[in-house]
Amino acid sequence: METATPVDNGVDVEALLGAREALTEAPEAAQFKWRASCKWINGTHSRSSVKSFFGLGEEQAHRTEFTFDADHPEVFASEDKGATPTELILAALASCLTAGVASVAQHRDIQLRSVTATLEAGMDLQGILGIDGEVRNGFDGINVHYDIDADASEEDIAAVVAQSQKRSAVYDVITNPTNVSVSVN
C-alpha cells in the first residue's frame, strides 16, 4: 500500500485558517499597524529598521530588529552601500507574492520543490531628474516571472500564482493608489 507523503511547504495553514476564523469574529483584532524608521547616514545612504508593530489588539515586536541599507549605485555618483529603494520595492513585491505562493500551494495540497521569481521594472530617469514633466517618477511597469517546480499541473500552478496576486498586500499597494501623508517635526 502506498502512503502519500503529506504536503509540507513549511506553512501552517491550520493556524492561518484559525486566525481567519478568529478575526472574522473579532474584526478589531484584525487592525494592524506596520512601522519602519529610517535614519540618514550620509549622501544617499540611509538605514531603515523595523522592530515593533501593532496587531491583535496590542503592541507586538519582531524577534529581532531588522535593518535595510539603501543607497544608489556609483553611476548615480553615490557610494553604493545598499540596494536602491526601488529595488527594495521589487524585493518586497517578490517576497509578498512568494509567501502567497507557498501558502496557497500548501492550502491546495501542492508540494513545492523550488520557486524562483525574477523581476524587472522599467524606469525613465527623465522623470526623477525633472527633465520631462510628462514622465512619471516611478516604474513604467513591473514584470514578474516565476519558475516553479511543483507536484501539480501547469494550470494548477498558474492558479496558485494568480491567487497569490489576488491576496497580496504589496501587489495591492503597488497596483492601487494609496494616500500618503508626510509631516515634518
Binding site: Q165, K166, D172, T175, N176
Partner: peptide
C-alpha cells in the same frame, strides 16, 4: 476603478491578473 483624485480617475494595475484568474 480604484480612486478619483482631483477629477482624475485612477485604475488598478491588476487587470492582467483578473483576466488570468477568470480564464483559469
Amino acid at each position: 476603478l480604484a480612486g478619483i483624485t482631483g477629477g482624475k480617475a485612477q485604475f488598478s494595475g491588476s487587470l492582467p491578473n483578473l483576466a488570468s484568474l477568470a480564464d483559469l
